[in-house]
Design a protein around this nucleic acid. Structure first.
Lengths: 245, 245
DNA sequence: CGGTCCCTTGAATGTGATCAATTCGAGTGG
DNA sequence: CCACTCGAATTGATCACATTCAAGGGACCG
């Protein structure tokens, strides 16, 4: 069995047992490739499944308000989609592919089975979900109190960090498959203002843009400007229960 | 054993078994009364415990940015505090009593034991945590795309709803133990602008303010204005596992 | 080529912030 | 009972960050 990206991600935190690996394998059993812009879940849909994202980016969007929607979550390969929706059947947010990619749908019953048979894995998923929540809180802090420029910078350095965890690279240049309008949806801004911010950051030598790649020229400076702390990629596993009941 | 407020809340969703009730009772075993403004958790603290909030209000705040902090979560009686922090030991947000009240601290090991022995209760707590996450996403939508006035209205009608679930009342008048500055921290505004918004809502006959009580004079109209849907107080329990492994 | 999407820039506008005073109310002490 | 204090509420004047409106340019694609 070739290592899946989810297994790899989970094993950043704990060494999985064989039976835990079986659960993970079960979640990734069914693969489906998706096109860019493909809608996976629409607002109002009955949601039956969670998903593992194997390749590509996916985004969660909220309903439109005054003609604009907002991006509430960007999923990168290896992440589990749908943990925030476990409590509800009817979707209040949409899920859409941002790039071509591949997803693995799996039913809620698999989660139920996990709770019954794999307590430690359950604790891990719950902890991952709790980190998602902390990340959202940070997004709220940014929207509520930061300037637009700082929000953009915060987004870029955070994203770089998430990507470098995934790719195990220390690269300050990365692919950013978002239009300026979509960046606006992420940051709560208009595309026009995003354009001006990017221009100003370019002019002041802080970033470089080439097509849909972006390079942080002074990452340390940028991180300092927004008080960035690399805090949301580690999990405290010390309290976890035994691997099986 | 007198019914606890947490049991009551959980039994909105599922009928607890005796052994599940024991877990809940264990979480509420230790009581501690707290004064208004008392800091329970400071940013940077090592967090060992979760809490059940028995009486009073508690608020989570993010770090200050340009002299202002923001309120990320308001906890009402019967809610479980700390589900979002399960993944981390070092607090990145603070927890503070907003009123006098009472909390019941319990260790993470209780959660571990719950994962081992009470799979259905685990699924319920995870679902509750997932609803918290959806509520945060809605907060992001509001901050990103709504006007200040709509954000204030959204906050008031949502809060009214949460309170009426707790008190089982249909009252449009309720206690709001927040200063205008604190309301600003909730909404991402300055206290001065909150003041003007409240004045305008009063003048246009939409609300009435008496001390720290507030009355929604035209709740239907207000709810319509912000497209409010009473969506975050129900949980889909159909997929839950059996009560014991 | 014509169409469409995205990026880019300028000018005017507006929402909400900032700065500065004043008032109000609840305590507190004389 | 009155002066005093301190925090919260209130209001006006001004400012600025970000939006809106308007227009044009570049790349890709049928």
């Amino acid at each position: 069995m070739t290592e899946s990206c989810l297994t790899t991600r989970l094993e950043n935190f704990i060494q999985l047992t064989e039976s835990e690996k079986e659960f993970v394998a079960y979640m990734e059993r069914e693969e489906r490739s998706c096109d860019k812009r493909e809608k996976i879940i629409r607002i109002g849909d009955n949601v039956e499944h969670l998903h593992v994202l194997k390749f590509g980016w996916a985004v969660v969007r909220g309903r439109e308000i005054r003609g604009r929607s907002s991006v509430l979550r960007i999923y990168l390969p290896g992440e589990v989609i749908g943990l925030a929706e476990l409590g509800r059947t009817v979707a209040i947010h949409s899920l859409e592919m941002q790039t071509d990619g591949m997803i693995c749908p799996f039913p809620r019953s698999a989660v139920a089975k996990m709770f019954e048979r794999a307590p430690r894995l359950s604790a891990l998923l719950m902890s991952i979900s709790s980190l998602d929540q902390l990340a959202l809180r940070e997004q709220v802090v940014g929207l509520a109190r930061m300037t637009a420029e700082d929000r953009l910078i915060q987004f870029l350095v955070t994203l770089r960090d998430r990507l470098s965890v995934a790719n195990a690279g220390t690269n300050n240049r990365f692919h950013l498959p978002l239009s300026q309008a979509e960046l606006g949806d992420v940051l709560g801004l208009t595309s026009i203002y995003v354009n001006r911010l990017l221009r100003d950051l370019r002019r002041s030598g802080k970033i470089e843009v080439e097509g849909d790649h972006i390079k942080l020229l002074d990452r340390e400076g940028l991180e300092e400007q927004v008080d960035y702390s690399r805090v949301l990629s580690q999990i405290d596993t010390s309290w976890f229960p035994e691997t099986s009941a």
